[in-house]
Design a protein around this nucleic acid. Structure first.
Lengths: 339, 339
DNA sequence: AGGGTTATTTCAAACGTTTGCGAAATAGGT
DNA sequence: ACCTATTTCGCAAACGTTTGAAATAACCCT
């Protein structure tokens, strides 16, 4: 039950002057009598006057709000992305409004619609895994609301993107395992209809190739969940018991693999070295702590926000920009065989 | 670079009728000629007309936006709370806008101010740990913007609250440890200036008391971080080597303790059983998986949102409501000595 | 005193939408 | 042909704010 917020009109009425004068007095316009200014400003402070943002938004045709559509906020990576966005946005006087798609194409479409109608100034989006049709993004493009895609790209929509060098990250992780004495490494790969699934696999294969290690038919396993790894690994290790390294497409899968390895009484990293990908919080929780590739969520968020703000403020329609961030190898205990 | 959004005026101009007619035609007002209606609706669809929410907000003096101020989005518990809020809010046609305080009193005050000025319809807040002064909330109260506090309460501000029964949760966890054969349990407690620190400690002590177990001078240790536990536990266990159970104030501390126990070659749960509190994602990651108390983040969020919406829509000024949710014991391997 | 300048204030339109009320037009009835 | 009822539409105000332009008032100079 909102009590009446003090407006410029209220102040004007009390002081028997016009709203315009009040408005100018509040912003220290030179045309205003110092005494009037003083009266206005004092009263404004006394009544705790706060300008009505909605009215300003209407006037300036902008809401100072950035819409974020992201699969699931509970995932560490996504929440770091959000934090990065929020930081830059706030510094520029913008707010963020978050909608989750739960990896559902349908909810994503819905979110785009509702956010559009609340007049956000731009979008930052990580597409749902299930999104295969891009009409809703095309629509945003037509309306002219700027968009930046994060982490997951699609070539159909022309928009700014900030991605991470998945190939290089996978290459680095694999090379690190090799340098630490692994010769028989298995890659737990993501779905091959997803970009990250393919790129990370390719980075893995390329690293093996450059180290003159030949791949076996079991070197790549499609397996990208904690539970799947727990089921798969014991079976795999008993079948091919010379496996001495695992590079998983993400941290969660890596942790599952780690548990599985330990469960059949092999040691991590002495018997099997493990690396994940993402550097999420759980890599720090794992025992032993998990070597992984830092995916720079916070930095991605910051970049995305900067790109979006630039686009929002720009008058000219420059072509789409793609930023590819470098990953970083984070070495922890799970990969250090030699110590 | 936003292209001109289609407005009611545009439609009116094209059809040579007045904006009011267009407005009414779009909402199927009986006063409008069916033919005009048809023309308007068809053109609106063709031009992809979307009502300008900002203008509506100005008119209706509401923004349909709920402001959330939360310490850190990356914490699993908080992101589940947010998800709960979002669900209920969306169902009611509201959006959420998120601001993080990073557990800083200063940022919290700032967030309250900026959110207020963007005319949110209500607040859902989890206070920062460092917040000891409540003037900013008092201010919100005076202005008349409804507020709901989640998880952390303060008696000074009169507002709705949704809390969890910390005492009972701690009691249940402790009793569970006792039932599983622990007789010498240590509680890793939170800071005693925080409600949860005190309540959970009291639940712990009460459970011991009810089981006729006398507390030792080392039974309660102030220790609420992963790293602190890793430092503290080995020392403690070597000093008092009959300790056979640990109840930690949160999951992260429990995991630290678990690592520490394993590091000095004692087994979890056989030698030392462990329970955490929160049921965050890491309790599932830990090895062995961590027994814990589910703090019902999602439900808390849902409750908070419902309470807020009720308050927003209500005309009468009913007294503040406090909802206390029950926790739930989640039994996992880390506490099952007997198997 | 008239002309000019300057200081201070107000008017009015604008942003996009809704809505009570009045106006115009049409139709029906006698 | 006149009155009334009905249908259909437009005017204008409102939400809170900004801003160019016009208005008023006060002053100085010759």
């Amino acid at each position: 039950m909102k009590g009446h917020q003090v407006t410029i009109k209220d102040i004007a009425k009390i002081l028997h002057i016009s709203p315009s004068t009040v408005s100018r007095a509040l912003k220290d316009h030179p045309d205003i009598n110092p005494q009037t200014k003083k009266n206005v400003q004092e009263l404004a402070k006394k009544l705790n006057y706060k300008p009505n943002q909605i009215a300003l938004n209407l006037l300036q045709k902008e809401s100072k709000i950035i819409g974020i559509i992201i699969p699931e906020i509970i995932h560490y990576f996504f929440s770091t992305v959000i934090s990065g966005i929020e930081k830059i946005a706030n510094e520029a006087g913008y707010h963020i409004i978050i909608a989750q798609s739960d990896e559902s194409y349908h909810k994503e479409v819905e979110n785009v619609q509702t956010l559009l109608s609340s007049n956000i100034d731009g979008f930052i989006i990580t597409m749902a895994k299930t999104t295969l049709n891009f009409d809703h993004f095309k629509n945003v493009e037509e309306i002219g609301v700027p968009m930046v895609f994060v982490d997951r790209s699609c070539d159909i929509v022309t928009a700014d993107k900030v991605l991470v060098d998945d190939f290089d990250g996978a290459y680095k992780a694999t090379t690190h395992l090799i340098e630490n004495g692994c010769v028989n490494i298995v890659h737990l790969a993501g779905p091959q209809n997803l970009d990250i699934g393919v790129k990370r696999k390719e980075g893995f294969l390329s690293a093996l190739n450059d180290a003159n290690i030949e791949t076996k038919d079991y070197s790549v396993q499609i397996c990208d969940s904690h539970d799947h790894a727990i089921r798969l690994i014991p079976e795999l290790l008993s079948k091919y018991n010379n496996i001495d390294g695992i590079f998983a497409v993400n941290d969660l899968t890596a942790v599952g693999a780690m548990k599985a390895v330990k469960s059949i009484n092999r040691r991590v990293p002495e018997d099997v070295a493990i690396s994940g990908f993402t550097n999420s919080f759980i890599s720090y929780i794992a025992d032993p702590e998990l070597t992984t590739i830092d995916q720079k969520g916070f930095e991605m968020g910051q970049h995305a926000a900067r790109m979006l703000l630039k686009r929002i403020k720009s008058d000219e329609n420059y072509g789409p920009v793609t930023t590819i961030l470098n990953t970083e190898l984070v070495v922890r205990k799970s990969s250090l065989k030699n110590k």
